[in-house]
Structures are given as structure tokens and as C-alpha cells.
Design a protein around this nucleic acid. Structure first.
Lengths: 231, 231
DNA sequence: ACCTGAACACCGTTCAAGT
DNA sequence: ACCTGAACACCGTTCAAGT
């Protein structure tokens, strides 16, 4: 295991986005792009637990060991697939005032993570550090910067918004995992009773989704109060 | 198959004094409590990936298959261990006004999840629905209820606070996973540069932790504005 | 350069059998 | 009731060998 010549610390090799790309040949049957697309397809179709090297190889019409010519480990596949789902949002460029840009971008991130629940499932194991994720995060930071807030206040808002997105998506993914979105199940009823939220809403998963916007709202309002920015 | 020294001949069964003792074990060597404690110890010591049935069995001085008499599957161990770390917080009863109760409880949940990073790692796969977790969540809901806010506003605040806790803990766990807390690594530097946060803070992981309180602050301020509650 | 096939050292889980 | 031991059907990853 020889570290790349540019690696300054052992941590550098831990992310595929920071390892040098391999040189390509003319007619390889596999490619990082094909592998990424198949990984996403497999995850979307069968969920996080179904991502095995052998299942992916089968999807690609290749042998499991062939995949290792393109990636170093299974985790790389997760990183590639996760960043892939942020692609469409990263490709768009929202116009408007800073608040609109923040709302739009945060919501797009949240939507990507809930449309592909496996991505939220992996979020505790793999940070969202792919190029598309970084594009979205820095878009939010730039919007915050345009308000004239201090660097510290920008950092506070940026991390809090990012944490809210991640937490909402994570909770939604976990709930789906237990089929908590089945409002009729005894487990769901038990949870509802336990938190004494019997009347409203009837379905906690629906609530988590519905209330993401409201949570973002509260966060932005609180930040305005804190910074005194009411543009 | 060597006969043990206590092996009985057929004649022994003729006398009650020589029949084997009652089958119910007075002192079973395993128990859910022991299994839970060992699971937590193993996870704390070696991390989420180290939790295998065989490793746990080794920790317990038993065979892996024995664990299945107490739990149905490996996921049950994760659920038990995760709820266990909420035990101390659930055992305490914070006194004070609603805001203090909410701050204390949310912070205790966040601390439990970051002190045991594996718990945050699993949060996307297993919802936090153990008795201790539900105790803490309903404590927050009750505090919100005491403000006289509508059921909907309570639900919004409750889910948003819970989402912030979960997201902050998840981001922290994922960052640790990539050793992003090594502020010197090129990966960390690259991320900092990418989000154009070069000056402050120097270390994003430290920031996530430090800014949890501030995020909670913003959320509560925003909720006050929304509901008009300024008690 | 790319890909295969076999092999290694693991997994979670089941189940007949023992006590 | 509780625990063992062996077995099954998998895993991720490595590596010599092929093209």
C-alpha cells in the first residue's frame, strides 16, 4: 500500500476524491462512470445492504475483482454514488437573494438524500465531501458571505443548516428502515403514544418531511435575530 | 465423544437422587444486560465495524450462536447498545423553565451520540426508539407543551431540534471516520479551501462541535419569533 | 492496461445436539 | 431453559495469471 506522492497525511488516501485518477485506455469495458452509475442503480433498486462487490459485478457483467482496478475499496463506491446524486443540484445555479439561494440549495440537498435513502444511511460513515457536495455547501457559504456577516456567524449558520439537512434526512431514512412510515403499524402507534403526540400529526415520518421547511425557517429567523441582518 | 465424569448409567435414572437437577438454570451465564454491556464496551473500544457476533461472543466468553438465544439478529444489539448510552441522561430529571429543559436534554443527547460515535454512525440505519431515547424526546415535547404552543408548533420544534441533534452528531461521526479532525491533513485543508472558510475556523470538526449550541440557540430564537412566545 | 479465477480469512444465521 | 459445535451461504479483498 504505497501512498500517493502528494499525500501529506495518512488521512488523505481515505477519500477517493483526493487520490490521483488513473490513466485510461481506449476501450475498457469498465469505467468509473459505468461503475458509479451501476452502483447508484443497484442502491436505488435494492437498498444499502444490497451493495456487495459481487452483486455490483453482476450488474456490470464483470467479475468482482475487476472493480478493484478502479476503486480501492467498497467505501469508494459509496462516496462516488452519494456525490452522484448531488449532481443535478450542483449543476443548477439558483438566482435570487441570499435567503432564496440558501433555501433552494438546502432543500435540494435534503431532497437528494431522501430520494436516495441509502445516501442518508451512509452519511454517518462517510462525510459528504465529494465535489458536488462541496459545490452545494460553498454555494450556501457564499450566500451567507454576501450578507456581510462575520466569518464566525457564517460558519455557525452554514454548519447548522448542513446539520439540519443531514439530521432530517437521516431520521427519515432510519424511519423508512423500520417501516415507521406505515402509520397503522403497532410500532408506529407505540412511538406516537410514547411521545404523547397522539393528535397531531398522525404520522411522524410525514411530519419529519413536512417540517423540514419549517425548521429551516426557524433557523434562518434565529440567525437574523442573532446577526441583526434583515435585508 | 468422551463421557464426562458425571455421565450416568441407565440405572442412575431409577433413583430421584441420581437424576439430573432441574433444567431451569438458576444462574445463566449470559443475559440481555451482560450482552448489552459487552456490546457497548466492544463498540466503545473498537468502533462500529468491530461489532461481529464472534467478537462479541469472545468478549462474553461464549459462542456466537449462544447470543441468538437472547436476540434475534445483530441489529438488536445495535438498538440495545444505542439506547443504553441514553440511560444516564434519561435517569436525570432537569429542573427549570422550558428552555432550560430543552437545552439540557438536547445537549445530553448530542453528547451521548458524540461520546459514542458508533451510535451516531448507526443512526441512519436504526431509528432512536429505545425507551431511554423516547423518554428524552417526550421530555422535550412536554417542555414545549408547557409553553402553550399549538400541537403543530410543538411538533415542528420537536422534530427540528431532534434533527439538529442527529445531524450534528452524524456529521461529527462521519468526520472522525475520515480523520477530518486532523487539521493538518491535505484532505482537511482541501475541504476548508473548497468552502472558502480559510480563516475561521481552522478546524471544521471542532467547529461542528462548538457550533451545536449556537445552532440550538438559533432554532429556539426562531421558534420564539414564529410562535410569539417570549416567556 | 485491464480483467479473470481462485483463494483467503472472514461474516450472520440456523439447527441438531447436548446439558 | 440455555448453550455448543458444526455447517451453510455468503462477504471484502488479494494476487498470480491471462489478454
Amino acid at each position: 500500500m504505497t501512498p500517493s506522492p502528494t499525500a501529506k497525511s495518512p488521512a488523505d488516501a481515505a477519500s477517493i476524491f483526493h487520490r490521483p485518477a488513473r490513466t485510461r485506455r481506449v476501450d475498457p469495458s469498465l469505467s468509473l462512470e459505468r461503475i458509479t452509475a451501476s452502483t447508484v442503480a443497484l442502491l436505488d433498486r435494492e437498498g444499502a445492504a444490497a451493495l456487495t462487490m459481487r452483486a455490483l459485478a453482476n450488474e456490470l457483467g464483470a467479475h468482482a475483482s475487476s472493480i478493484y482496478w478502479y476503486v480501492d475499496r467498497r467505501e469508494d463506491l459509496v462516496d462516488l454514488a452519494t456525490d452522484f446524486v448531488f449532481g443535478p443540484a450542483a449543476g443548477r445555479t439558483p438566482k435570487g437573494d441570499w435567503e432564496h439561494i440558501i433555501r433552494t440549495t438546502a432543500t435540494e440537498m435534503y431532497t437528494a438524500l431522501t430520494d436516495h435513502a441509502w445516501a442518508a444511511e451512509f452519511a454517518g460513515q462517510r462525510p459528504l465531501l465529494g465535489p458536488n457536495a462541496l459545490t452545494l455547501v460553498s454555494r450556501i457559504i457564499r450566500a451567507l458571505d454576501s450578507t456581510g456577516a462575520t466569518g464566525k456567524d457564517q460558519a455557525i449558520a452554514g454548519t447548522s443548516i448542513s446539520n439540519l439537512v443531514l439530521g432530517a434526512a437521516t431520521a427519515s431514512a432510519a424511519a423508512r428502515h423500520l417501516r415507521l412510515d406505515d402509520g397503522e403499524s403497532a410500532l408506529t402507534q407505540h412511538v406516537i403514544a410514547a411521545v404523547q403526540q397522539v393528535t397531531e400529526p398522525a404520522n411522524p415520518v410525514a411530519a419529519w418531511t413536512a417540517y423540514f421547511d419549517e425548521g429551516l425557517d426557524m433557523l434562518i429567523h434565529g440567525w437574523r435575530t442573532r446577526t441583526g441582518i434583515f435585508t
